[in-house]
Write a protein that binds this DNA or RNA. Structure first.
Length: 424
RNA sequence: GUGGCUGUAGCUCAAUGGCAGAGCACUUGACUGUGGAUCAAGGGGUUGCGGGUUCGAGCCCCGUCAGCCACCCCA
């Protein structure tokens, strides 16, 4: 190709691609606002220090796009939103009325090897509930995730939200006599269990210094689907998700611990039930983050969902909508050179009636102009040629049904509005 | 950051080391006032890029870039 290549890991959004992104954004907005959440956004650029606070070694050191500004300050393209949210809340923690229900949708960047479901530039939905320290708050957040899946056609048979509580997991490890210092390593081990073979997993467990008896106990704990009953928080959580009507979508899973360091309580992630793709979304409770960036302590819970995996899953399960990127409702063909001015003025009249109207700019064959309308899914055509001009009329054609009628020119706009609104 | 696979038309893919092709899409015509279907024709390529081997490279070799897959990590 002679053209300059796109930046690695970025995506071009042609009109049909942007149409899907906007459609997803609209579903996200409807669901978020349905629970009373306000839209906000942070800057795309942040000081690298912000992430150094808590996000985790890997994310900051290796996966951020970082550059020095002209003053030498290290700046990062935001790899996630939660630290920005914590900073924004911390800066006004005295004046913001609580609880805070905020959501956002925008671009993020991570310097990683692109592959299926993962790019270097991606879009992400963030939704958070701050100022409430209760399992019921976590349950609302999980219910919102379930509501979004429902809204895009991914029912409980296709997506499950898998839930655990770090406090329960830590208690379980303590009961097994596992040193608190080994927790992080053991959490990673737990996280990797379904991706590794049994022998490899046992070997890594041994490397961590876990005895055979401990490994056995750990294994049986990870298979105990009833252990949530030992947790007051999870018991309250599941009672609340049932009341919220999403009981079928949430499931206790003792192997969910999540990678980010700032989670402090209930954690969850959504997976496709076929197990084909990586996590669709992930989140949980992070009660210390706001104070970590300098604010007064505010408990918080929330999640982030990328735009790529859910799209892959929707395509695979056949629930992706077919979206028309062309907004035009009415095409006004240019019948011939002589009537072109009339066609232009007709299109202006139709626009004045509130119709999204497109004038065909060259007087080519009428069949070619109607074919253009057909290819773009434009439902209506308003034809004005020599016959119509001499009788002060317009021929209206509904391309969906093939029906055609001739109306006085003064009636063309109102009649088209009627047809376009489905009343015709 | 590590390892593997693959790069040919807008898309999906052919072509034994010997004339770069097909289907879909696009444009035009069959059809001088009517789209979808059918038929026909046409446009579109520095075979990702750079080097090497060879009489001759889309094909073989080296490098590079990109895509995909598995790690790592995570949305």
């Amino acid at each position: 190709m002679g053209t300059i290549q796109a930046v690695k890991g970025t995506r071009d959004f042609y009109p049909e691609d942007l149409a899907f992104r906007r459609w997803l954004y609209e579903r996200i907005r409807e669901v978020s606002e349905g629970y009373g959440y306000e839209e906000y956004d942070g800057p795309f650029l942040e000081r690298l220090d912000l992430y150094a606070a808590r996000s985790g070694e890997e994310l900051v050191r290796k996966q951020s796009f970082v550059f020095p500004d002209r003053g030498g300050e290290m700046i990062a393209l935001r790899p996630e939103l939660t630290p920005s949210l914590a900073r924004m809340v911390a800066m006004r923690s005295q004046s913001l009325p609580r609880p805070l229900r905020w959501w956002s949708f925008g671009p993020f960047w991570r310097y990683e090897r692109p592959q299926q479901g993962r790019a270097r530039e991606f879009f992400q939905w963030n939704i958070d509930l701050l100022g409430v320290d209760s399992p019921e708050a976590d349950a609302e957040i999980a219910a919102i995730a379930g509501a979004l899946f429902q809204a895009v056609g991914l029912g409980p048979d296709k997506v499950q939200i898998l839930v655990n509580d770090r406090r329960l997991a830590e208690r379980q490890l303590s009961q097994m006599g596992i040193d608190p210092e080994k927790r992080t390593g053991v959490f990673h081990l737990i996280d990797a269990r379904d991706r590794m073979s049994k022998p490899a997993w046992d070997r890594q467990a041994a490397e961590l210094g876990l005895g055979a008896q401990t490994v056995k106990e750990l294994d049986s704990t990870l298979n105990d689907r009833q252990a949530w009953k030992d947790s007051a928080e999870l018991t309250a959580f599941f009672a609340a998700t049932e009341a919220l009507g999403v009981a079928e979508s949430v499931l206790y899973d003792p192997s969910i611990v999540r990678g980010l360091d700032y989670y402090t309580g209930i954690v969850f992630e959504a997976r496709d039930t076929s197990g084909e793709f990586r996590a669709i979304l992930g989140g949980g409770r992070y009660d210390n983050l706001v104070s970590d960036v300098g604010g007064e302590p505010i408990p918080a819970t929330g999640f982030a969902m990328g735009d790529m995996v859910i799209h892959l899953l929707m395509d695979k399960t056949g629930v992706s909508p077919t979206i028309r990127s062309k907004p035009t409702q009415v095409l006004v063909p240019s019948f011939d050179v002589e009537s072109m001015t009339e066609a232009i003025s007709l299109s202006a009249e139709l626009r004045a009636c509130g119709l999204r109207t497109e004038w065909y700019p060259t007087a080519v064959r009428l069949s070619a102009q109607l074919k253009y309308a057909d290819r773009h899914g434009i439902p209506l055509a308003a034809i004005i040629g020599p016959d119509e001009i001499s009788s002060s009329s317009v021929t209206i054609k509904d391309l969906r049904t093939g029906a055609q009628e001739n109306v006085p020119r003064s009636q063309a706009g109102p009649r088209l509005v009627e047809i376009a609104s489905g009343a015709g």
